[in-house]
Amino acid sequence: MGVQDFGFRVYEGGRTSVLSRILHLARLEVGRFFRSKKFLLFFIFCILPALMQFVLVFLEFVVFEGSGKILGMDVPGGAVRMHRPGPFQSGISSFVFYFGPMLETGPMLVWLYSAVVGAGSLARDRAENALEIYFTRGIQPMHYYLSKWLAVTFLLLCQLLFPFLVVWISAVFLAPDWTLFEKTVGYLPRLMYGQLFIAGTLALWTTSLSSSTSSPRFAAMRWLGVFFVFRVIALIFYKRIFRDSHAMLVSPWNIVKEAGFWIVDEPTRYQIQEIYLFPVWFLLCVAALLWARHNLQPGRVVA
């Protein structure tokens, strides 16, 4: 068996940039999920709030031909929760209709989805010894982590943002005139950076938490456990002990959600002051990065 017989060639071309390698790895991670039929079914389940919004849009503009408000579809009175109406009670022309459903009514779905797409991302590679392949190539642990973060952020945007963009586009085209478009087109940048902030933060935390274990299931359970337990503790502090909304700073989910609403300039549910909110958010992000850095040292993982 000769080398030349099989056309083994000397490679004389240039090398691609590190960014191109990072993007390739991120694309591969995203593709790994979306080619699984099981994951597609799970994904559809996880975007149910968006599907419900689509149904509302359809009812408003096709079934009721714009009379949905008169028929009681868009009556916020009585449905006011805390300081503002919930996303399903707000009108199709309101910002919260597109921004809020997943965060307000479907947090469990976000937790579950982020656990599946994020919490297992690094743990799976550890379990398969794939890190040994990555770190002995032309990328560094930092690049590897960045690629995973990008992939998980994109996957989270597939749940938090893209379905609602589809809902918005559908609403614009089903509406009888361009009034809805004119009223809502200004929401798009806020919707995008708000959800990007939330998806990016969740991706950062979940991938970091995933870096310390070789069991994707354990990583996912730990992620869900962290969200659930700290939220319960925060609620107990808030409702039973301190009776102060700042007690919700104990819950990572509430931190990211409140910060998300704050940066899109919408009223937040617990009205936590930003002077407390963002330092805690920042500390959690730094801790997550340090945790990932500690667990992704080549000497530790390429053992």
């Binding site: 490679y11 071309g13 240039g14 090398r15 691609t16 191109s20 390698r21 390739h24 790895l25 591969l28 790994r32 398969e128 010894n129 794939a130 040994e132 392949i133 990555y134 002995t136 190539r137 032309g138 990328i139």
Partner: peptide
Amino acid sequence: PEREASFPTLSGLESVILAARLSGLPG
């Protein structure tokens, strides 16, 4: 590597392409 290090969900071809891309070869 000596240890089993692979991407079980990827095909053999995709695994080798990934290795090529990570080493800086264009697509």
